[in-house]
Design a protein around this nucleic acid. Sequence first.
DNA 1: TAAATTTAATTAAACGTTTGTTTAAGTTAA
DNA 2: TTAACTTAAACAAACGTTTAATTAAATTTA
Lengths: 209, 209
Amino acid sequence: MEYTDKQVQIIDTAQDLFAENGYDGTSIRDIAKAAGINVAMVSYYFGSKEGLLEAIFSRHAEYVRLKLENLIQDKSQSPFQKMEVIIDSYIDKYFSQQPFHKLVARSQLSNSNKPVKDMLNDMKKRNQDLIKRLINEGQKTGEFKKNIDVQMLMSTMLGTANQVMTTQDFYREVNNMTDLPDEEFLKILKKKLRAHLQALFKAILKNED
Amino acid sequence: MEYTDKQVQIIDTAQDLFAENGYDGTSIRDIAKAAGINVAMVSYYFGSKEGLLEAIFSRHAEYVRLKLENLIQDKSQSPFQKMEVIIDSYIDKYFSQQPFHKLVARSQLSNSNKPVKDMLNDMKKRNQDLIKRLINEGQKTGEFKKNIDVQMLMSTMLGTANQVMTTQDFYREVNNMTDLPDEEFLKILKKKLRAHLQALFKAILKNED
DNA sequence: TAAATTTAATTAAACGTTTGTTTAAGTTAA
DNA sequence: TTAACTTAAACAAACGTTTAATTAAATTTA
């Protein structure tokens, strides 16, 4: 699916507003106003408000898949090094595209929007299969332990990153970092999260040398 | 704050509907219909729809605090044993009160409802302070490691549990457990999650003997 | 205790907004 | 001269909340 500049502009705007105020909490008029377009354009281009939401997700699905596939085929890195890259790029993506990931989290919690949920599930399944292959590779070389629950492992990565992101203001308050510039605070938070997740993955995945 | 039976009935109904369809996705008329009351009763008892949401959270806050405080003061268990109890009771609560925890997750993602967010943050801060005390205790006895990021640790517990809960249907599908009875599936899932979290906590907290 | 009075609970109807979507007229570009 | 785009206006439906009237319960008075 290809989109014109105007359509992409609508998608981007809607993505931010959906993430900020929720799907139900965002009206088409809000989107139209923020994007500087007429309310009828959403129906014209995407059929409906729900169609717009689907367009938002489909635009991301392909990008993620490609990136993962390329990484896994890379033969210059060991399985655990690849795992570290996955953690890194995941955190980067989480923080650089917070609105989108908030939207994903919201959509997973929601019961409506069956096509959207199916799309998210397909996305996740594909990604998880790729990671499973990576783990199998590491088990063959003896770098990884034998019994690994891939799904629990991924739930920890996604869940922890999500939790840290959604409660970052709380984290900031508790640690007296409210007077720090946003950028610097996020840098520290990312660093902490990265170290934390890598320690967790190491404990679960790696065989003691 | 004390509530009459009728008020509790409204709170319980609203809690389920909010969790299922979101705050914005649930109308006062939906709540009234499901609870078998008139639409005006919500405004009459709780002032507004938002007031109802606050009532939902305030009812839980006290309960959690009491339980945690009692556990920590218990001298018959070691710090790590207490930590295991915390994980267990957390998982139990997560699964037995899924609608409520979905609602919490939704509310944390949402930007509106400042009083509600403040209440959630207070709740979390109190709980985290108690757990911090528990960890300090374990560090004094030498059972726990020195450098522990309590907030990252809690983010992993809450985040992982949340992620597993919200994507349980996906977990079920991928592992070919769709024909299993609900109850049995949840039992297995809880067991896996418990083992997973305990392994994580052990790796992060405990000193090698 | 019985009746009278006050307070609380409950109702249906109506309020003004806002919602997603459609229409029909207009503009721009191919 | 088509076709694609863009618009303002209108649509019915749903929203949270308020109103005023009515019933039920509690309290006071006789």
